[in-house]
């Protein structure tokens, strides 16, 4: 499997504080990569550098490079909007827009210039089906999305991200606000989606990383400590700090 995304010597500062130190990583295509580590370790920050969501914070400074399909995404010639379209994101807290379910899904395609009603209907249905929520919502597409349960909202957000046909889906602790049943549905969905998408997921839940991911990266204090196949990382960690963390000695 080829690597769809690579980072090389990535450093990131918030004003004076360095939040990421020399992170280098290769993320293989059509797999699930999990980022774990104690809170404040930089895993979410790193995730956000992958589709340049950190650009929105004025005090952030970044050095090093992140390549997507061989192209450095921090290069000045890169259109960040096009980039974010290819690298979608699902957030910690479900954040549907205060609009109808249909308009939520159609928002992305419309933004990117799709106007035809037929085409939009098709995309909405397909995205909702892909996110395994179609049957639950097909009769109330015109209802406000804020009326759904938290788990449904999160799957709606996944469907919304899928609607612009991304290649990669970044998930920032997508289940931390959800109950166990909704969580397991999202996990099943992630495994299903990896057939066609590359998924990078930040999780504070190590069982979740074990259950769904192919590769796991362990972050500590802004550094990538260890990265490898999930099974191997959890059974025979190389670094002492990884071992301490996964055996629950800190964090």
């Amino acid at each position: 499997m080829s690597d769809i995304m690579t980072a090389k010597d990535l450093n990131l500062w918030y004003d004076q504080t360095q939040a990421l130190k020399n992170v280098s990583i290769k993320i293989p295509e059509k797999s699930i990569t999990a980022f774990i580590g104690p809170s404040g370790c930089g895993k979410s920050t790193f995730l956000k550098t992958l589709n340049r969501m950190n650009d929105l914070i004025p005090s952030v400074k970044i050095t090093g490079e992140v390549c997507y399909n061989g192209q450095n995404i921090y290069d000045s010639s890169v259109d960040v909007n096009e980039l974010r379209r290819e690298i979608g994101m699902v957030f910690q807290k479900p954040n549907p827009f205060p609009m109808s379910i249909y308009d939520n899904i159609a928002y992305g395609p419309r933004t990117h210039g799709i106007k035809s009603k037929v085409k939009l209907d098709e995309i909405v249905e397909q995205s909702l089906r892909d996110a395994a929520i179609w049957d639950e919502v097909k009769d109330r597409l015109k209802k406000n999305a804020l009326g759904m349960s938290g788990g449904q909202q999160q799957r709606l957000c996944i469907a919304r991200a899928l609607a612009v046909k991304p290649k990669i889906l970044l998930m920032d602790e997508p289940t931390s606000a959800l109950d166990p049943i909704s969580t397991s549905r999202i996990e099943e969905l992630a495994i299903e989606l990896k057939k066609s998408y590359t998924i990078v997921i930040v999780t504070h839940n190590m069982q979740q990383a074990v259950r769904i991911s192919d590769n796991t990266a362990f972050f500590l204090l802004g550094e990538l400590i260890e990265y490898g196949e999930t099974e191997k990382l959890f059974s025979q960690p190389v670094d002492k700090r990884t071992e301490d963390y996964i055996t629950g000695r800190f964090g």
Partner: peptide, 11 residues
């Protein structure tokens, strides 16, 4: 969060 979601969709 609303704005982040929109930006992440490439708007």
């Amino acid at each position: 969060e609303y704005e982040d979601a929109s930006l992440a969709l490439g708007a």
